[in-house]
Design a protein around this nucleic acid. Sequence first.
DNA 1: CTGTTAGCGCGTTCAA
DNA 2: TTGAACGCGCTAACAG
Lengths: 340, 340
Amino acid sequence: MENLNLKKLAEELNLSISTVSRALRDSHEIGEQTKQRVKALAKKLGFQPNPHASSLRKNKSKTIAVIVPEIENNFFSQVINGVEEVAQKKGYHVLIYLTHEDQGREIDILRLLRNGRVDGVMISVSNTTTSFEHLKAYKDADVPLVFFDRIYENLDVPRITTDDTEAAYKATEHLFKMGCKRVAYLSMSGNLSISSRRKRGYKRALEKYSLAENELTVECNMNDDENRKKISLFLQQNKAVDGIFAAVEKLAVNSYQVCHDLKLNIPNDIKVVSFSNLAAAALFDPPLSAIVQPAYEIGKEATTILFKIIDDKVLLPTENNVIIPSILVERKSTSRQPRQ
Amino acid sequence: MENLNLKKLAEELNLSISTVSRALRDSHEIGEQTKQRVKALAKKLGFQPNPHASSLRKNKSKTIAVIVPEIENNFFSQVINGVEEVAQKKGYHVLIYLTHEDQGREIDILRLLRNGRVDGVMISVSNTTTSFEHLKAYKDADVPLVFFDRIYENLDVPRITTDDTEAAYKATEHLFKMGCKRVAYLSMSGNLSISSRRKRGYKRALEKYSLAENELTVECNMNDDENRKKISLFLQQNKAVDGIFAAVEKLAVNSYQVCHDLKLNIPNDIKVVSFSNLAAAALFDPPLSAIVQPAYEIGKEATTILFKIIDDKVLLPTENNVIIPSILVERKSTSRQPRQ
DNA sequence: CTGTTAGCGCGTTCAA
DNA sequence: TTGAACGCGCTAACAG
């Protein structure tokens, strides 16, 4: 049963291969009853055209690739959910690649995708990526490409992001409004577009509230142990700090642990807000105020735009730079009132 | 640059296509210096053989498919992480499909995968799947297949699971040891293999502790609102209940919310334990005791076995039914001591 | 409306 | 050691 193909169907039906092929593809130049006959047999035998033959012939794979740094991160899972939704509707298949924040893997993956395996690629670049030749080369090869969330600015490729700067501004401002004076920014190392955008929002808020001299940044990395040590040391050396704005969820989690160890009460001694797409943030002790990114929408929008490029449609000017706003969800970790 | 192929390389080098092909595949019947020349140019031009032509010719796609019910669930993300790890090492590509717990989608997806698009499939079946003809048909088509976590018992296909029954037993027993007498089991509806296995463990513990008459099961579903109402009603009508064992994380979250609303203190009034792979469970209020499944390992193991089948290796008898144990992590939600 | 023919790009005969 | 030729299964151009 593995070698069911057009030829066999044709023999069975006493028709030519091309007639069968056309009938299955609902060509208008095939008689209605022939069509029925062909389709009936195809269905009965469970025929599926060989995708490789078809892809080779049409130079179309009906497949797109999503490249993300990691998948054990609610944000990226939600993006993939959105991607899959749009792709499945269009009859496309989705290949997943993980870079694990490694530029080397990113380069390897892009190379693999350069000869027709996919019709388009969506990527959120790794935080160790410092050279962008592989992205340029890919774009130069005229393969449809879209950036989402973590973009590379100097390439003319559609980008789908959230309003990081604005959201970071609001988060920082929120801390000020709740009474904080000395807000520290916990950032992830690496030269990420999102890092700089978020930091910009943080700094703008400081300026707006005439607190620029209180700027305090703690550079963290992927290692939880190191981060906790760093944050712990930082808080002990800067006792006046009364607010933390974490650029990523991981750092908020680290901060919670450190505050617990140092017997710092959140939100009374110190308030915490963070980017986070974790639904369970509401169950934290205390519930974590979070900037929730529109991950699912980013995935859907990025895929929709990628398909437009694949289908050679003209992009609206706005579609070259889509920004979907994040939402600040205020919870107890930034509340003004002391805990009951 | 898009149409770089063997032919062009051959012309450039004044060699035949087949020589170039062989040189790139390191055939022993090609002269060392010719090889060098070919490889140098291929590298310089960034040549990648067309995967569809290659797949068509070799009847091998170097691609596997992972079918999961949902991806916004730490368990499945972690599994995919394991899958991708093993696949990437072997030079394989990974297609992702989401069923959203819908049998119809599952059937459609499997049909799409039936003609060589992939060399093998790993699936965790949806909870609405009641007919298994599509799985049987797939297996009958002789495509390598592996079940993980949510398996279909009546098909002779390798299965990679965790020790659900044993883990459920331990979780229930843990509640008893912490002083509970009336433990309710919150289960997900649907005819899932894991549901019945977990319930079995729960019941065994009841019997072992001579509490069989206290069996209480609340059947929940995918809808959070409905679940909360159901659990709330249940707890109000069964005030003696002093322990909850949730079959899935979602239901533990729902329970936390209900307990909060009903002003039931966890763990003093009622203790909660649940299957959950969420790292942040430790930050919950109170920290959630959890049965952590070896998701990453399940993904790796399932992929390793799938590759063995693809490569026509003989499976060890044990590999037809791999069970990797879960771990019970005890936290405050089941602690005996009252909160300070 | 249907059939014949010619590739898509690659790997693998068979021949030199 | 290299080259010429064939066919994987499908689609599309061209006939009739």
